[in-house]
Design a protein around this nucleic acid. Structure first.
Lengths: 115, 115
DNA sequence: CGAATCCATCAACTTCCACTGATCAACGAG
DNA sequence: CTCGTTGATCAGTGGAAGTTGATGGATTCG
């Protein structure tokens, strides 16, 4: 399924890093928090987050590329929604990092592991 | 307690963003994963992650500044350890983001909220 | 149709990150 | 004391990321 040479149980650190990067901005976290209340159009977010339109559009794209939100067009509006699965995935990564779990699950991307 | 004007129950998005930034790099995630097995000195990490010394030192500092790891000196070695509480904090942020929880918990940093 | 609204995208600019190579301090061994 | 090792820090560099303002497409309304 996956294209990289990572074992099933290992965390895909590259993928995880991309997810965390999408979360590493207060504006984007603010967007996600608002979406926690349900679907929102960009103009709603604009008002509530007090952010310029192009700025918001930029951050929404980052979130969408990371798979954290999806959008839906209706008339001239774009409605954005959370993708719970991706948040769940992120959740899992942290849980795995925290516990003494990684024995025998080294990944390949760093070469020298699993030795 | 906190210096900012955020309510108790609200997520501190600025703080959260800083945490996620520290997690947004594959090398740093690799470090955390290794530390999941227990304390490590820098030279161990160097070998296992195949990273230059100054590069590793840089990333360890990022993790330390974020409160995700602590270090301890012994002789010429520096040993790094996970800080489970901080990982737990991160964990909580994601859980709060994912659920329909944020009602009435808007934060101040965006001005127009809580209105 | 023409005007207004919603939003994505673009160019230009600035700021921030990560990496490299070098230096330096601290410590231990011979 | 001298040398090798560990690891922090610094300066320089290239590239990525974020912001702003402007443009343009799509849609709706008068």
């Amino acid at each position: 399924m996956h294209s990289c040479g990572v074992t099933n149980t290992a965390i895909d650190l590259t993928r995880a890093a991309r997810l965390f990067h999408a979360l590493s901005d207060a504006t984007r976290l603010g967007i996600l928090q608002m979406l926690g209340d349900g679907e929102r159009c960009v103009c709603d977010l604009q008002g509530d987050l007090d952010a310029a339109q192009s700025r918001l559009s930029f951050h929404l794209k980052v979130l969408k590329d990371a798979g954290l939100v999806t959008d839906r067009k209706e008339g001239r509006w774009s409605y954005y929604t959370l993708v719970p699965d991706t948040l769940g995935e992120t959740h899992d990564v942290i849980r795995l990092l925290g516990t003494e779990q990684s024995k025998g699950r080294r990944l390949k991307i760093f070469g020298r592991c699993c030795g």
